[in-house]
């Protein structure tokens, strides 16, 4: 029995780690491509010639830096608006019983169940009908839309997991509603709001399909990659891909380690 359990445990572990390796394989390849001089412009294969020139000047490819700036700008504005609007909705849904609550839940679920092509194309049709010029702001509107549902779901989950007795305790200690919210509820929900904001940031930064429909001549980073893919992708794109990955990974691991240390003292 013990032997078989050991085998079963490690079978699961081996398969799990193999699947993780599958998830990481393309990232390793992105890194290898970033230090490899391609045989010709259209080649996706690794050549035997290695170089650090792309890391020395990642913005050497024309238009790459500008596209990154546009993407960061859109992601910041969209995240800010979506996080505020979504958090308010999450509070309403988690904390109140009211007429129309179920309908609101469906309304929030539907955008997540809608394929991106459908959402992107219907927004495009709206903008065309209203004769709104496509550009930075139409992309922002679209990004807020698809980030919103994810913010609501994330913050709502955090609110649902809170122990209501903490707020009752605050009220018992003569805190009024506003003080209870400021000093107890908000600090407890903050990690959920932060997670939602991070999720929005990465969803917005990464989005291609909806952006492609609504961007007009505005070029975001994914749009730049898409355009470049047609005429031979500059290897600098892989430098940016690897750098963003490393930055985000290190940041998240540090946050994890810090919260673990904090948890030990509490």
């Amino acid at each position: 029995m013990r032997f078989w359990r050991w085998v079963a445990d490690h079978w699961v572990m081996v398969v799990g780690l193999l699947v993780l390796a599958y998830l990481f394989l393309p990232i390793v390849v992105v890194f290898l491509l970033s230090v490899n001089r391609p045989a010709n412009r259209l080649s996706y294969d690794l050549s035997p010639s290695w170089t650090l020139e792309y890391w020395a000047d990642p913005f050497g490819a024309a238009g790459l830096g500008a596209a990154l700036r546009v993407s960061v700008g859109i992601a910041l504005v969209a995240t800010l608006v979506a996080t505020v609007l979504g958090t308010l909705m999450a509070f309403a849904l988690a904390r109140h019983r009211f007429r129309g609550r179920a309908t609101t839940n469906v309304l929030i679920f539907l955008p997540m169940a809608t394929p991106e092509v459908v959402m992107g194309s219907s927004l495009l049709a709206l903008f065309v009908t209203l004769r709104v010029p496509l550009g930075f702001w139409t992309v922002v509107v679209a990004h807020i839309l698809f980030c919103l549902s994810f913010v609501v779901v994330t913050v709502k989950a955090r609110l649902a997991g809170l122990d209501p007795r903490l707020q009752e305790a605050a009220m018992d200690l003569y805190a009024n509603e506003w003080q209870t919210f400021r000093r107890v509820t908000l600090p407890l929900v903050l990690p959920g709001i932060a997670a939602a904001a991070l999720l929005s940031l990465s969803l917005s930064f990464d989005d291609f399909i909806i952006t492609n429909f609504n961007s007009g001549t505005t070029v975001t980073f994914p749009m730049y990659v898409w355009g470049a893919a047609q005429r031979g992708i500059p290897r600098e794109v892989n430098v940016v891909g690897t750098a963003v990955f490393l930055l985000a990974f290190v940041l998240v691991v540090i946050v994890q380690l810090r919260s673990r240390r904090k948890a030990r003292y509490v």
Binding site: V30, F205, V225, I233, N238, G241, V244, F245
Partner: peptide
């Protein structure tokens, strides 16, 4: 979640 940190298109091109 880490793969999400690299752009979807760049990973697919990989």
């Amino acid at each position: 979640i880490a793969p999400f940190f690299t752009t979807f298109l760049v990973r697919t091109l990989a």
